[in-house]
Amino acid sequence: MRLQIKGICHSYDQVEALRDIDFGIEPGEVVALIGPSGCGKSTLLSIIGGMLTPTKGEVLICDQATPDGCLNPLTYVFQDFALLPWRTVAGNISLVLEDHGLSKTDRDARVAEVLEQTNLWDFRDAYPKQLSGGMKQRVGIARALAVRPAVLLMDEPLSALDAQTRILLLDEFAALFARTGMTAVYVTHNLNEAVRLANRVVALRRRPGTIKEIHTIDIPLAERCDGMPELVAHERALWNLIRDEAIAADKELENVA
């Protein structure tokens, strides 16, 4: 599936959040959205996912091709996991398959498949409150994979986790993207995550968010690893790109406070 973001502008009442956002997302590509706090990254992701109507502009699906058995082409992975506390791990995953006319056997098969993929099989009967943050996010990923999405929309999926878990899950995300060639839009504050996972990084200016630069990282995902000098160089370049914006945004936030 290929997406084209065309002339997106968005305002919340009188506050302009995004202005003239234009870029495309190619099949199999991971695009990271970075920028200072309040620059509209999550707003842009909500617009791409059809959860928010932009004030102006449109998101076009240029190529309708989706993976076999795709039930929800544009699928979210949430920062706060968004798991139903009254359902087990398997129940949370099954929930998103229940409205799509699948038989119970097919649903159970898909649930079992993603539980295996995400190493959650042993936790299938656990409730979210019994899981660590990292495990909860694994359930979030498993739930997203169960609908065989065309594009994964990930809204700071690691930001609610502790540092060690973040490193472990980042490796798992990198392996997942490298193995499946999945298309994804990945919102993050963390430049290390952006350079580990993204083929292209869209850097936004502070509010109103506009594109400052689209930075390409030409290293195959499978070859990337933590601390790789080329990635460190990309991370530094990105930091130089958004440093002034981050400082200015921080001062704006202080003024607001």
Partner: peptide, 17 residues
């Protein structure tokens, strides 16, 4: 929690669901 409702909507669950 609104995020749970948005999760359901983002997975195209019907309003009844």
């Amino acid at each position: 929690q609104r995020n749970l409702i948005r999760m359901g909507q983002s997975f195209d669950l019907s309003m009844w669901s």
